[in-house]
């Protein structure tokens, strides 16, 4: 259970987030994008009793891949660095509270704020998707993975926020990480595979090591249990891990990304005193 001081700090961070403009801008953007995609992107047709969501669902997956890391990373990256710059952090740490409590309070508050924002946008988009015939299991899985992805990037953002001396540096680090994890890293792997014949195993490993790719694998694993959508590499992943195993490993990767940078950030925070 959280101590009273940590609960207080969580509440403080949550209120700060709810007062910030980013919360409403991101929530509105996610809501609007989700509603548009769910309304116009999903086919509401059944062919001989068959439905297919792979292509239509790709839009929602792309939306989550683009927006959720941004929504999580930048507020988290700004969080500690901003208060350090303004002197507020010094004031908080002068109170009878530990570094771990302050860090946990920031993390918890941001997680709650983002969960509210995502649930608001996702609930509305999910309602439209449900009317369009998307199975409830798929909607809930996507929602679960979206929350996990948010956790990863909050941890990563907080880690940058602690490590960087200024807000600008923290945001720059966040932007570079976002670019690398969302697109450039994968493009680099593609180039390495085509140009230098990098081994196929590298492709499989990258899909689980990169949280953004792990999110995609996890969601596709529910959509297409044998991962045939992912070609021969997908097939070999299934041979090794089984259909539930791939989704499980993707979730594990996301959980590890949520924990690892968080703990690193806490260590850096304590060290920085």
């Amino acid at each position: 259970m959280l101590g009273a001081r940590t609960r207080l700090l969580v509440r403080r961070e949550l209120y700060a987030s709810l007062s910030a403009r980013w919360f409403y801008v991101y929530s509105a953007a996610f809501l609007l994008g989700g509603l548009l995609l769910a309304t116009f992107g999903l086919q509401n047709t059944v062919v001989y009793g068959y439905r297919g969501f792979a292509k239509a669902f790709a839009g929602l997956v792309h939306l989550a891949l683009l927006f959720v890391p941004l929504m999580a990373l930048f507020p988290a990256a700004a969080s500690v660095a901003e208060e350090r710059e303004s002197g507020a952090l010094e004031y908080i740490l002068a109170q009878p509270t530990s570094y771990a409590e302050v860090f946990a309070g920031k993390w918890g508050g941001l997680v709650l704020a983002l969960a509210l924002s995502l649930t608001f946008g996702f609930g509305a988009a999910g309602a439209v998707a449900a009317v369009r015939g998307v199975p409830p299991g798929l909607i809930l899985t996507l929602y679960g993975f979206v929350l996990l992805l948010a956790l990863c990037f909050i941890s990563l953002g907080l880690c940058f926020s602690v490590a960087a001396q200024t807000r600008a540096r923290a945001l720059t680090l966040g932007f570079v990480a976002w670019l690398l994890l969302v697109a450039l890293g994968t493009l680099g792997i593609i180039v390495a595979f085509i140009r230098w014949g990098a081994p196929e195993q590298l492709l499989a490993i990258w899909t689980f090591v990169n949280p953004v790719e792990a999110f995609r694998i996890g969601v596709i694993g529910v959509l297409d249990a044998d991962l045939s959508l992912l070609g021969p590499v997908g097939s070999r992943i299934i041979e090794r891990l089984g259909s539930g195993g791939a989704t499980g490993l993707a979730a594990f990767s996301l959980a590890a990304w949520s924990l690892g940078p968080g703990l690193l950030g806490l260590w850096l925070f304590r060290r920085a005193r």
């Binding site: 792979a54 790709a58 997956v61 792309h62 891949l65 683009l66 969302v182 697109a183 994968t186 493009l187 593609i190 595979f193 085509i194 196929e200 492709l203 499989a204 899909t207 953004v212 790719e213 995609r216 596709i220 959508l229 992912l230 070609g231 021969p232 590499v233 997908g234």
Partner: peptide, 21 residues
């Protein structure tokens, strides 16, 4: 075009890297 030439790259199907390309 790339996925046709290199089937292994289909592992990035429905991803942002393919969309970026």
């Amino acid at each position: 075009d790339l996925l046709g030439k290199y089937e292994e790259l289909r592992v990035f199907n429905l991803g942002l890297a393919a969309a970026a390309l």
